[in-house]
Nucleic acid binder design. Structure first.
Lengths: 342, 342
DNA sequence: CAACTCTTCCAAAGCGCTTTGGATAATTTC
DNA sequence: GAAATTATCCAAAGCGCTTTGGAAGAGTTG
């Protein structure tokens, strides 16, 4: 069943039926209702290809598949992607994946996607501190939006969480509790978010006249093993250097840290304090830890949903100001934090 | 730059240029070379939408996004998806994600994808023992392929690994080593693959005249916690019931089991044996365990790559026999298995 | 009642490709 | 050398939608 058949059936022109179905104002509500009913009855569904050709819009958003695989990274990405796909479907968009691995360079991928008009816009996640993709997409005139921020010469739209503020809050909670030696287990240093978190952390320390100590700050993968390894290293420091509190960038890391602490018989919230950032994954919750974890939390799935909305709004009004949305991050205090021991 | 402009530039008809570029035989190699060169020079890229409209093919494959989120499941899916996207791109196809969550029923999603001709075919992963999606897609006449198998009334193409054989081999290794009480930590019972694994396991036991004991067989999520919980339960059994070997369905489970064993001071391969299935994720390897793990192994990423090839072949020759490919699974013996103690 | 303005609908022109059904020129066959 | 064959190429017709530029009828206005 296509438009022509449907309009013949209705005794109307294709124009009118098309307009009726697409909600244009210049058609009476009566004919609109008739058209809708007939479309429903005969299971009419406009051909995506024809519509794309006619409008020049593909009705498809591209999400860039991260180059590297790694455990937590993948989990976060899946959750984010799930949010994107879900919301996109609700808004009538498809989501396709763009990957730049193997033979193709990233640029070639974007060029191809762009020139063959496969996607209307792209979503970039995990931006680096300086991310070349921003200038590239800008040059190619491909609409896009960032999940996160980046230092960039050209303007870009983004949705980000307040990583700086989150880690400031978390570190401030610890300094207010009297902690003086606080360790930061960060994500990889090349990512913007890790940089922002470190800055928030340092700001809180500086406010109390403390300086972050280099041996207490470590970037790395957001996996359990990194948490374990760093926890072992930190606990083996001489007492004068050993941290009394640890701030983790992910629950996975915190999990590794916590298991080491348990092995050493250290009680969370008493002998040592622990805070982590919680992305609200479906399957891993700060509150479900053996000792419920104090955490900064923000749903990465919700971010996926929202970023799709922002991108689509941007596509519909390309000349409107670029979206710049920063979500505040809550600090939820649970049992894993307590006053510093004298 | 579109076809018409390009053909004008070349002084050829659109027909000829189109045929030249698409490798049809009725055009001389000389003009083909010229057309290719001009296309390259001017950065001509055929419009996906126009091609779709003209051919009725979308050049897009749909991958069904699993309904539930769970940690290892997500990791496996991401790895599989990565393989799909990568290979699809190499073959000139896009991959879009179909999700059946929230308001839309799964059927509505497929119907929509089908009628608006958004995808040429779909890839289903994690099939249930009896999976209604098979009949549904068959009825809708949507081409599809399964990653895994299922009991179904209608025919379907698939790529699967020999789960039955893999777990038979693994269990046989253990019985040959003299183990008599072997536990199986399986995936969730509703999935076909879990069923197949259990059958292989039981077959190996039966060959030695052993019956699987119900208290030693447990299905569940493929996460570390399930491994830990079950390990604790098993080790607390009275000696006469306690297993001397454990067979896990995933490295995550094995990881949980292994940590419990370590806490109890049991040495892998001496006091107790452990085998797991290893999907060859990027970030988690059986050989990297503290005691390298004996494992059945098969790359789920490679399966993603292959299933895309199979689906595309099927789309090109819909009347050819449906693909039915089963990969043998290697059993790699490492240090975590040893003879049963007398 | 003529002159306007809305409202409602339509015919037809694309969008950029593929493909059918020739046409023309070059080559071979008898 | 005429007829048949083959190798190249082309004009034009879709594919199914959106959208432009009216047209016809209904309602308003002076």
């Amino acid at each position: 069943m296509n438009l022509r058949e449907l309009s013949k059936l209705l005794g109307l022109s294709q124009t009118t039926v098309s307009r009726a179905l697409n909600g244009f104002p210049e058609v009476s509500e009566e004919t609109r209702a008739k058209a809708r009913a007939a479309a429903e009855l005969h299971g009419y569904r406009p051909s995506a290809a024809a519509r794309r050709l006619a409008t020049g819009q593909s009705g498809t958003l591209g999400v860039v598949f991260p180059r590297e695989r790694n455990m937590l990274g993948d989990l976060l990405f899946t959750e984010f992607l799930g949010g994107c796909v879900e919301r996109a479907a609700e808004l009538g968009y498809d989501v396709t994946l763009a990957m730049a691995r193997g033979a193709q360079t990233e640029e070639a991928v974007y060029r191809r996607a762009l020139r063959s008009a496969r996607v209307d816009g792209m979503i970039l996640s995990s931006p680096l501190i300086e991310d070349p993709r921003i200038d590239l997409l800008r040059t190619l005139k491909m609409p896009f939006i960032l999940h996160g921020r980046s230092r960039a010469t050209s303007a870009y739209g983004y949705l980000d969480i307040d990583n700086e503020g989150a880690f400031y809050k978390a570190a401030k909670l610890l300094t207010d509790l009297g902690h003086r030696r606080i360790a930061l287990l960060n994500g990889e240093a090349r990512y913007y978010f890790a940089n922002a978190r470190e800055q928030g952390f340092r700001r809180a320390l500086a406010e109390k006249g403390l300086a972050a100590q280099d041996h207490l700050v470590a970037g790395g993968l957001m996996i359990e093993k990194h948490g374990r390894d760093e926890a072992l290293r930190l606990l083996d420091l001489a007492p004068a250097f050993r941290p009394s509190a640890i701030l983790c960038s992910s629950l996975s890391q915190a999990n590794g840290v916590q298991s080491v602490l348990a092995e050493r018989g250290l009680r969370l919230g008493h002998d040592i304090s622990l805070i982590a950032h919680d992305d609200r994954l479906q399957d891993m919750h700060a509150e479900s830890f053996a000792t419920p974890l104090t955490a900064t939390q923000s749903s990465i799935g919700a971010a996926g949903r929202r970023i799709v909305e922002l991108l689509i709004e941007h596509l519909r009004a390309p000349d409107a100001p670029l979206p710049e949305e920063v979500w505040p991050v809550d600090l939820v205090v649970r049992a894993s934090t307590g006053p510093a021991l004298p």
